[in-house]
Amino acid sequence: MQRRKFITTAAAAIPAVTFGRELHLQESRTDHGFVVKANESRFKETTLLFGGTSPNDIKVSGKDTDGQLTLFEYTGNVQGGPPLHVHPKQDEIFFIIEGEYTFKVGDELHKLSKGDTIFLPRNVPHTFAQTSEKGKMFFMFQPSGKMEDYFRKLATFKGQPTPEEGAKLFADHEMLVVGLPLGL
């Protein structure tokens, strides 16, 4: 009799577990639209990069999308960019609002300016450099991964991290440095 009760209970639990999983996904997502005004971030939190010179605001958080997407708005007031790196788990998309950028994706170089969009697939080495004095872009990660926390931690540095600090910071946030930044 114990075995029959166990089998019946286990069989009855399968739909409940499946239904509960769906409920969990919906509970961790926002259930309504929202507006994030210009020069503001999703949670009234601004991460200032490169010694406080360049705001990097979260516009749509992984908390809103159950970790499926994060969207940032970056205003660059310094030239340069990150080292050549790989995201094993995420694709990236950049949309240029203002300024000029050079992107390296694999072995290809691309010059981008206002209105241009570039897609960077996961597992492909890439980097970029802002080549104009000022730049502005929206960029997103899909899925979100640990990128929000990466930029929060990067903002704690007074300037650029050393190559060793940068490599550790990348590794701690599921990225791998595989080369140098682009030279200007």
Results as ranks from 00 to 15, higher is better:
Glu98Leu: 13
Phe50Met: 05
Glu92Tyr: 07
Leu176His: 00
Gly166Phe: 03
Phe119Cys: 03
Val35Ile: 13
Asp66His: 13
Phe95Trp: 14
Phe157Met: 06
His126Thr: 03
Met175Cys: 00
His87Gly: 08
Thr30Ala: 11
Lys44Trp: 01
Gln2Ser: 11
Leu49Lys: 07
Arg21Gly: 14
Lys114Thr: 13
Val36Met: 10
Glu73Leu: 09
Pro161Cys: 04
Phe50Ala: 04
Asp64Lys: 10
Lys59Gln: 06
Met1Asn: 07
Lys146Val: 00
Pro82Leu: 04
Lys158Glu: 15
Gln90Met: 14
Glu165Asp: 15
Lys37Asn: 14
Pro83Leu: 06
Asp64Arg: 11
Glu148Met: 08
Thr46Asp: 01
Phe50Trp: 06
Lys136Pro: 05
Asp107Met: 01
Gly76Phe: 00
Ala129Gln: 07
Pro181Trp: 06
Thr47Arg: 06
Lys37Ala: 15
Met137Leu: 13
Leu112Val: 11
Arg152Trp: 00
Gln142Ser: 15
Tyr150Pro: 10
Thr18Asp: 07
Lys168Arg: 09
Leu176Pro: 01
Gly76Lys: 05
Lys59Ser: 07
Pro55Tyr: 12
Gly80Cys: 00
Thr18Ala: 08
Lys89Ala: 09
Val78Gly: 01
Pro15Phe: 05
Phe170Gln: 02
Gly115Asn: 05
Asp91Phe: 08
Gly166Met: 14
Gln26Asp: 13
Pro15Arg: 14
Lys59Pro: 04
Ile93Cys: 10
His126Leu: 07
Ile97Lys: 13
Asn39Val: 00
Glu27Cys: 09
Thr65Asp: 15
Glu148Cys: 09
Thr18Ser: 04
Thr65Ile: 06
Glu22Ala: 13
Gln130Leu: 15
Ser54Val: 05
Glu45Lys: 11
